[in-house]
Amino acid sequence: MSARVEIDIRSKRFGGQEVLRDISLTLAPGERVALLGPSGVGKSTLLRIAAGLDSAFEGSVRGAGRVAMVFQEPTLLPWRNARDNLTLTTGISAPLAEQALADVGLAGRGDAFPGRLSLGQQRRLALARALAARPDFLVLDEPFASLDAGTAAEMLALTARLVAESGATTLFVTHAPAEAEALADHVIVMSGQPAKLQLDPL
């Protein structure tokens, strides 16, 4: 259920602009790594490459296996109810989907359309979907963005518990140091132009 993921990016450009150079990152099986850095430094770009969504770069990503991702936006199918959002995207059965909903505190909400859920609930559903895929490699892109402080803290505790239970190798992007420390074994700081990585001594 976990993968040894080797990310090796020699160069990533958008047009003439080089945003990433000589980035090498290896995640041990089951390891949880947080990427910390200011907005616009290329964290999401690195994450998209790691998740296999962007192949227009020099370098390679190896060993990712089955990937699941929690996006910055919940990115749900608004025309399908919560249960279908789990079954259609990950292929799990309806009873398992109900269980997955209960695991994130959405018990009994299987018939609700995403538009009827609060942002916090939508984020829970997105988390449930990523875990329902039983990933070897889990990628989370600012999963607590634009939540109020109370909801974000709750969501952080829930995410930390479920990610640890899943045992998936996890790469997680944030700009909040407290989130990074709560969720990850290691924190890596990303900075510069083009961006470089640096292990946070904390």
């Binding site: 998740a51 296999g52 969504l53 996006f71 936006e73 199918l77 259609l88 895929a133």
Partner: peptide, 12 residues
Amino acid sequence: PGLDAMARVFRM
């Protein structure tokens, strides 16, 4: 494009 990325990640 977000939903497109989602569908690709989850290999629909």
